[in-house]
Amino acid sequence: MNKVVNFYKRNLKEVLRDPLIYIFCLGFPIAMFFLFYIINKFSNGNTPTFEVLSLLPGIIVFSYSFVMLTLSIMVSKDKQTFFLKRLYSSPMKSYDFILGYSLVGLFIGVLQTLICIITGLIISLISSVDFVSISNILLLIIAQFPMLITNIFLGILFGTIFSDKSAPGICSVFISLAGILGGCWMPIETMGSFETFCRFLPFYPSVYIGRIITNSTNALGIAYSFDNIASFGLITISLFMIASIFLAIFAFNKNMVSDK
């Protein structure tokens, strides 16, 4: 466990000393909240998707994709600078590496969640909307947790298999997907077969379940409730989470003894 903590500390320093994290992981979610708040205000507050309770789960899920970006950049850079190769000849085991990286992802993810919740609270105060109850906030954090795990391991996976040049590009595709297919700022439930398609990816179900917890209403003015979409979504989310964990571990182990 010492080795994990040691590696985690190094990774955390590496991340916190890079300005990227402050812009993407912390600044971006805050900016989005205020942007949509303003848009909503100027459209006379009749876009349910842009209501703060509806935005909160969406922005949390979206912001987790920056955890993926950060981790993929870190892992691919460590690979590129031969830092990892060097550590491979040390007594560190593959789980030391994977845990050391994922703990950093967890740290950033939890920080983002808190920032999103605080920003959401501030906006709800400004626009005098009742905010989510404490117990539902906890529930929300738990409900979004699988999505955080998925993003952490996808980040490790992409960092392992792609170079430090291509990993950020691949991740930005995923970031866009998370934004569009998550329904964060788009009323997916009105989009027919597109909506059905989105159920097979983890983004939309995560946001959907989050919105049930925050008691928000969809674009049609109907309150979100735990229906088929949500229960099917739980399966999708779990499958993606398990797949990403296995793929990341598999790829990393392979990288440790590869000829590259």
């Binding site: 010492n2 080795k3 040691n6 500390k9 190094r10 320093k13 590496e14 000393r17 890079d18 600078t81 031969f82 830092f83 190769k85 060097r86 550590l87 040390s90 007594p91 560190m92």
Partner: peptide
Amino acid sequence: PQETSVANNLTVKENLEFFANI
């Protein structure tokens, strides 16, 4: 290694401590 490899964002001291801890 033939390629110098150190943790770039850590200081010299932190690098030494990091590797010592392993």
